[in-house]
Amino acid sequence: MGDVTTGQPMIRVSHLTRRYGRAVAVDDLSFEIGRGEIVGFLGPNGAGKTTTMRILCGFLAATSGDVEIAGHDVHRDPIGVRRHIGYLPERCPLYSDMRVDEFLRFRAALKGVPARQMRERVEAVKEQCGLTDVGRRIIGQLSKGYCQRVGLADALVHEPELLILDEPTIGLDPTQIRQTRDLIRSLAARHTILLSTHILPEVEAVCRRVLILDRGRLVASDSTDRLRQLRRGIVRVTAELKTAPHEDPGTAFAVLPGVRTATADKDGEWRRVRLECEPGADPRSDIFRVAVEHGWTLREVRMEENRLEDVFIALTSGGGSSAGETPERSDS
């Protein structure tokens, strides 16, 4: 486990297409996920993330294409496939009339956990997911965050090699989100994880690789770091400062190394200067030095770093041009 390169991949999806009537939800999707990877499935709502995940678990059938999980064909051996998967559905539906312990024991038995390991396994996942205090509680009376944890415990209870988590943090408050992310991160050592989300920080925080889906198509597939650099756009820096009215801070900054252009507001007591810089450049210390040299009062220097959001927006809204820059690496 953990070694991406050896053996067969955990998930192999080739030319997967899924239609609902005439609408295409997933369009000729191909990717692979190696064992031990933590992969984020990113895309706006309706991009086909949930559909793809449901197909991976055998809950939906593909219109065409093949899916293999740990070497089992989803269509031919759905039971074998599901044994390897711990699935947390979106919105985390649970039997609200059951107690947490009851539910987890029921799920463990259903997933084939042997009777003598049952107690141990249930206790272990409760421990893992922070459910030790609520074992006797009825699920319907738990808060949303606890429900999510129960769902996660359910996904984990049979020690699956692959975890598929559909929007695991949706509807949680910030504290719960952080706890859930920590939990997922802690799971990374022992499981292959595919999680879907439309929230960038989640992917940035947890995943090493991202698959970006838009309208059923895979528009990007790369490591989180590389994707971050993908759009080699311009670094924007904004500075706010007080100068004498006749002075032009723009020209002063424009000559700094790595700065392409610098434009300043014409008037106002506090003037804002916008700088566009070379990729990788960081002119902030230079700006400070220049301001001190001119005797300007510098109130703020803010660098807008290029983040996944930008990549995301560019890839999904801009259409073909940006996507063309990103080769689908996994599709060999």
């Binding site: 039971i79 599901r82 998967i85 699935y87 559905p89 539906p93 039997y95 799920r107 997933k111 359910d154």
Partner: peptide, 14 residues
């Protein structure tokens, strides 16, 4: 309706 069917049918049961 409640969606629990998805959870049920993704367990290894026929």
């Amino acid at each position: 309706r409640s969606g629990t069917f998805e959870m049920l049918m993704t367990a290894p049961v026929r």
